[in-house]
Nucleic acid binder design. Structure first.
Lengths: 342, 342
DNA sequence: ATTCTCTTTGCATTCGAAGTCATTGCGGAC
DNA sequence: GTCCGCAATGACTTCGAATGCAAAGAGAAT
């Protein structure tokens, strides 16, 4: 007695070939755009493929072509609404370009090592990092010939592919907007110590404040998260010289500061204190906040990042590039005239 | 003349075997936990592997073992803060279980078809769907023997694996909380027409309102997004009989409604109108909102979803299961006593 | 020393598609 | 009718790791 044919779960190219009465190579070619196949052949094969619900096995294909069409996206998992926006935009665009996204969320720095190993094991064709990465870790990837694009970060002393948002002019406009309102006493609500984004932004802010004759009277640090702003704001406001305007390193903290001021400390914003942020995330436009902020063109940054990565996957020898988009000043209602000094 | 040896980009198990002076099988076994390998062998191999920076090729492994260790996660890309929270939690947990996440964002229903094909091509071991899926689409996956877990949704008339949050009791408490405050005129801010989550929630709400002697005086629909609440709220409030409490199908819309009421229509919340939502997302706790809502235990739901999927990947014959966690009523400051009727 | 276990190791094959190369077929030019 | 060029097709090999099976080795018991 014949053993009952094990119910093949998945049709392979051989099954399709058998059914269509052609060779496996022919089937393969029919699924490769631009291959040399006659109309008749393509028809036969496609009909058979449809009948068997055949779809090429991307894993097997990846093995032989050495192209997985997988890209790894690294994002920090901290609850900061900036990352989901970026992630979704990037994923969307990769999808349209025929790449799949392997998502890695980074909780703590220690996760990165693991994550890079996985990237390597899964033969990801490239990496977009919107998370903290050391130069050493970056080098590991480059040594392995995996192109990397850094999203909204770069290294000062080391060449990389990166997408950056330049806020020099916008920052100047923002500070001028505040000094025009009569503000001279500024409080800085910075991000974490090691964060280059925060450092960069605060550098611009300091410079612009100096330029427009303001003075930094207080500084505090947060973690970029909403919750971290409460304590930092308290510390800023209980300073000997009270700031009349608070510049936060991102919108999340600006929102936290605004809430702390309005809802806990009983201040009016912008009546007593003005608050500004950075990023231009969706939530910053909510009517309860309407933050004055500097908006990153996230959509165009995602476009640029995806293009840049896809280009390097296709032509590995392309040299490093840094693409800089320009952030724009967005006036909200979280800023206004200085209160008259008593 | 010998052709210069092309610099092997990637060390394979053969390279490691050669360097260690053992067979390829031995190398493979050294990387398989629980395989029968002597101390000496493991040492030799691991040393060689380290020297060559060898890491097993997950693609090749997947081809032969028929296990990709990839899971697909489908989420809607609409800007609703609920999805990122769920996504990050789920990803985190899969990571710890040795699975990688293939992310698929769904913009419109038409994307699903494509996405399912990709899931099939990439041999995903399983799928978690936090996005809209028809029964037919679900069947496709099951026919292909790909286990699916539906996150926060299920089918009424079709068996599936699902994680669900039961809000029956909490809804009753919430409505009682409102009627105790004197509210009798309710306005419903529903989700999209085809959304089963909205339908379910609103069913509970209707029932509870009836139970506690309230009356639904107005209804409107939104898209679950913040922006969609503005118009819907206007429509609710310009109704002949004005509601004194608005029940939104999710927190995002509740936040939108609250902002529209406070910042556009000049109402006091909860002075003039009370507002409640559903989900218990992080942003609902922001001091500007402090929504009264029904919180889903997202962390435990993610745990359950991941466990359920991993179980079915490992034992494909496990029957369907529906795990139901209980939502809890969270009292915020968006609800209060009815205004005295004039 | 011999035999018998039980563990460790290597050989050979396998997974599924892609691509190389050789062959076939077809049309047109002579 | 013969020859040439080009398109279409198939046989065979390849990618890298896992595994069934057979063989070799290590002890233990006699």
């Amino acid at each position: 007695m014949e053993p009952s044919p094990k119910p093949r779960l998945r049709a392979t190219s051989y099954d399709v070939a058998r059914l269509a009465g052609v060779s496996q190579s022919a089937v393969s070619r029919c699924f490769k755009p631009g291959a040399s196949v006659s109309e008749k052949m393509r028809d036969k094969v496609m009909r058979a493929a449809k009948e068997l619900h055949y779809q090429p096995n991307a894993i097997a294909r990846g093995l032989i072509t050495r192209r997985s069409n997988l890209v790894a996206v690294l994002v920090s998992s901290q609850m900061n609404f900036y990352y989901p926006e970026v992630l979704f935009q990037i994923t969307d665009r990769f999808s349209k370009r025929g790449f799949r996204v392997l998502l890695f969320t980074i909780n703590e720095e220690a996760d990165v090592e693991d994550c890079l190993n996985q990237v390597w094991q899964y033969q990801a064709d490239g990496v977009i990092s919107a998370s903290y990465l050391t130069i050493e870790q970056h080098k590991i990837l480059e040594d392995r010939n995996i192109p990397v694009v850094m999203f909204n970060r770069y290294f000062d002393d080391y060449d990389t592919n990166s997408i950056w948002c330049d806020s020099v002019a916008a920052t100047d406009v923002m500070i001028k907007h505040l000094t025009d309102f009569g503000h001279t006493q500024f409080g800085l609500l910075q991000g974490p110590e090691h964060s280059m984004v925060s450092a960069q932004r605060m550098k611009l802010v300091r410079h612009a404040i100096e330029n427009h004759g303001g003075r930094i009277v207080a500084q505090a640090r947060g973690t970029y998260r909403y919750e971290s702003a409460a304590g930092a704001t308290q510390s800023l406001m209980t300073n000997a010289a009270q700031p009349t305007a608070i510049i936060a390193a991102n919108d999340m903290m600006a929102m936290g500061a605004l809430d702390e001021l309005r809802n806990v400390m009983g201040c009016s914003v912008p009546g007593d204190v003005s608050v500004v942020g950075y990023d231009g995330i969706g939530a910053a436009r909510f009517a309860s906040y309407e933050l004055t902020t500097i908006r990153q063109p996230i959509g165009r940054m995602a476009d640029a990042a995806v293009s840049m990565l896809v280009d390097r996957v296709e032509k590995p020898d392309l040299s490093h590039e840094r693409r800089v988009l320009i952030g724009s000043f967005i006036q909200g209602t979280s800023t206004g005239p200085t209160p008259i000094q008593t």
